[in-house]
Amino acid sequence: MFIEVSFVALNMVEIAVLLKQVPDTNAKIAILGGRVDESAVTSWVTSPYDEYALEAALQHIEAAGGSITAITLGPDRADKVLKDAAALGVTKLVRIWGDGWEDLDSNQVQFALVDAVRASGAELVYCGKQSADRNQGSTGPGVAEMLGAACVVEVSEFDASSSSYVRPASSGSEKVTVSSPAVITFSKTESDLRRPNVRGIMMSKKAQIDLVSSDVGSSQVNFNGDSSPAEKPPGKTFQGSDCIPEVVGLLRDEAKVL
């Protein structure tokens, strides 16, 4: 019996992964003095889509060789997302921060991230499609524009052997390839997220984090304040399926949605 082995020529890749620290998505968000009260948040995690970006980057370098730089912009506490990445084997860790950076606007965040990406020498940037706190989806495409790079958004699958990505399309989805440099923003993928092993956790304790800053200029956005979403008035409750004709009637006549 012959076993055919095919060797796929792959290039080593340098990947920068953008990881943002956000409150645990189960956390209650409280408002204090017109702003979200971050001091009330007890549990901080890596933004969920960013974890899929990191997983794809790990798979990519397992297949092609190369290395990953994990980059976060955030205060001291954000070191944790880098340590968590280190526990999965990422060796280059960069945190960006500066005085008075609590309210950076979209451009300022992108400037600072772009500086760090350039310094890392990465030709590929993997990030989340949307952060769990700001929910903007601006950072990936904005960083790409500043780098003169292509950007594939909302990727749900990465295939290491063909370096292709699956993104949504009006027809369903499509597999695309992209010339480098490129930024890829990840949605949830089918991949299971790996968990660190004991050795990884030990290594992460000793991991070195580079702390850098950037000149981001002044903000063009005025943050007026945050508020809680308007409370919904309590709804009507109906017991049992016998009420359904009444509910359907109300949906048609009162709510006017049928």
Binding site: P23, T25, K28, I29, I31, V36, A132, D133, R134, N135, Q220, V221, N222, F223, N224, G225, D226, S227, S228, P229
Partner: peptide, 14 residues
């Protein structure tokens, strides 16, 4: 909306 709609943010751009 921010935090997936758990809060709303108000901004002004000049």
């Amino acid at each position: 909306p921010i935090y997936s709609g758990k809060a709303m943010q108000d901004v002004t751009v000049a």
